[in-house]
Computed example of a mutant assay.
Amino acid sequence: MTDTAPTQVPSPAAADQFSGGPGAVTGKTPTPTAGRSRRFGGAWLATLPLIAFFLVGFGLPATAIVIGAFTTSSDAPDGGGSFTTANLTHSLQGAYATSLWGSVKLSALTALLGTALGLPLAQAVVTSRFRMLRESVLAGSGVLANFGGVPLAFMFVATLGNSGELTKQFALTKHGWSLYTFTGLSVVYLYFLIPLMILTITPALEGLRVQWREAAANNGATTLQYWRYVALPILLPSLLGGFVLLFGSAFAAYATADAMVGSSIPLVSLQIADALSGNVLVGQGNVAMALGLDMIVVACLVMAVYLPLQRRSAKWLS
Rank of each mutant, 00 (worst) to 15 (best):
M1T: 14
M1G: 14
D3L: 13
T4N: 13
V9K: 12
P12C: 06
A13T: 15
A14M: 13
T26C: 06
P30T: 13
T31H: 10
T33G: 14
R36K: 12
F40I: 15
A43Y: 08
W44S: 11
L45G: 07
A46H: 01
I51R: 03
I51F: 06
G59P: 05
P61V: 01
T63Q: 13
A64H: 05
T71I: 00
S74D: 14
D75C: 04
G80D: 04
T84R: 03
T84G: 02
L92D: 07
L92V: 05
Q93H: 10
Y96N: 08
W101P: 04
S103Q: 02
K105P: 02
A111H: 04
T115M: 11
A116S: 10
A116V: 15
G118K: 05
P120H: 00
L121V: 15
Q123V: 14
A124C: 08
V126A: 02
S128G: 00
F130E: 14
R131K: 10
M132Q: 14
E135K: 10
S136D: 11
L138Y: 06
L138A: 03
G140H: 08
G140S: 06
F147C: 04
F147Q: 04
G148Y: 05
G149D: 11
A153T: 05
F156K: 01
T159K: 02
S163F: 08
G164F: 03
E165D: 13
K168C: 03
T173S: 12
K174V: 08
W177T: 07
L185V: 10
S186E: 06
V188G: 01
F192S: 10
L193T: 15
I194Q: 06
P195C: 10
M197D: 10
I198Y: 06
T202I: 08
R213D: 10
A215R: 07
A215W: 07
A216T: 12
A216H: 03
A217Y: 09
A221F: 02
V230K: 02
P233I: 05
I234P: 08
L235F: 06
L236K: 12
S238G: 13
L239G: 03
L240V: 15
L245F: 13
L245P: 10
L246S: 11
G248D: 15
G248C: 07
S249A: 14
F251Q: 05
A252P: 07
A252T: 15
Y254S: 02
A257E: 12
D258K: 07
D258M: 12
M260E: 11
V261A: 00
G262Y: 03
P266N: 04
V268L: 04
A273F: 06
A273C: 10
N279D: 15
N279A: 14
V282Y: 15
N286F: 00
M289R: 00
L293R: 00
A299V: 00
V302Q: 01
M303E: 15
A304S: 09
V305S: 06
P308E: 08
Q310P: 12
Q310N: 13
K315W: 07
W316M: 10
W316Y: 15
